[in-house]
């Protein structure tokens, strides 16, 4: 017992500041936000009246123009397109690169470079590219579509009231497909060579090799990618702020929190934040628990 204390006492000392900081600044502050979300602090003035879940109920049933539901709908469209786009492109790029091609390093470096740039910086150029003008007023991508005789591709991008969020996902796909590619590439390279050889011995065609042997091996990687990109999508804030600014058309919950804070409605902003946290926790917690379990078994 004494040796244990002597051996690990300093270790505890070493990690306790970090644990304390995280305890306070992650879990403590989340608790605080939950408390504010159940209060009536709707103005800058301090107010501690407890109102239970009514701020949450109001968001779903009593928000002006159904603003919160609108932001959830936007988030859903954005997430579906963003996930589909990054997964397809990421897998395709990894597939094209996995058997080794000349200048593989160059392709990988270029495909992944948007990850090193901030959404705020890339938002500047995407705002220009996704210029909503068409015909004679066409700018950005619409202009190039016009020049290439692809005029039918011209569209209002994110300013479309119904499907604008599909366009908003385009820069996000540009930014993160390389990341998904890197994950898949690592997955491909982690598959033991024996599996490929065994398949070749059994006379499997290339198509069968991928369909029956390699792709099934990538399922865990695909799941990781889905969860990581999915939770990033739910938190999407920088990109939307820099492409469209805080606008009704493209509002998602993370932006709604910011807009609500500008009006000093702390209770409502907290309630939206807590819902956002729950959405993220819903995908991340099972993932973390499962990862820890697999790790312990190995």
């Amino acid at each position: 017992m004494l040796t244990r204390v002597r051996r690990w006492g300093p270790g505890l000392l070493l990690i306790s500041p970090s644990l304390l900081l995280l305890g306070v600044f992650v879990y403590g502050l989340i608790g605080w936000t939950i408390k504010v979300s159940m209060s009536d602090r709707h103005t800058a003035a301090e107010s501690d009246g407890f109102v239970g879940l009514s701020n949450y109920v109001d968001l779903f049933t009593n928000d002006i123009n159904g603003r919160f539901l609108h932001s959830l709908r936007n988030l859903l469209i954005f997430t579906v397109v963003f996930l589909l786009g990054t997964m397809l492109l990421g897998l395709l790029w990894a597939f094209l690169l996995e058997r080794g091609v000349r200048a593989e390093g160059l392709f990988r470096t270029v495909y992944l470079f948007p990850m090193a740039v901030s959404f705020v910086a890339s938002g500047v150029v995407w705002r220009w590219l996704m210029n909503s003008g068409q015909g004679d007023d066409a700018g950005g991508l619409n202009a190039i579509f016009g020049q290439l005789n692809l005029g039918f591709l011209q569209n209002p991008w994110w300013t479309d009231p119904e499907w604008g969020m599909v366009a908003m996902a385009v820069p996000a796909i540009w930014q993160l497909s390389g990341y998904v590619m890197a994950l898949f590439l690592a997955g491909f390279r982690g598959i033991p060579a024996e599996l490929r050889e065994a398949a070749a011995v059994d006379g499997a065609s290339t198509f069968q090799l991928y369909r029956r042997v390699l792709f099934p091996q990538l399922t865990p990687v695909a799941l990781s990618a889905l969860i990581i990109v999915g939770h990033m999508s739910m938190k999407m804030f920088d990109l939307i702020m820099s492409v469209s600014g805080a606008q009704w058309l493209t509002e998602v919950p993370a932006v709604y929190v910011w807009q609500t804070l500008l009006t000093s409605d702390y209770a409502k902003a907290s309630a939206i934040s807590v819902i956002l946290l729950l959405l993220v926790a819903l995908v991340i917690v099972p993932y973390l628990v499962q990862t820890m379990r697999t790790e312990r078994r190995s």
Partner: peptide
Amino acid sequence: ADVVFTLILFGMFIPYQAVMIPLRDV
């Protein structure tokens, strides 16, 4: 140890909006 580590890791996935409002005051 696993529980502690999981709790630590969760901190990197949270939407920071969920801590931002009290964080300013703190």
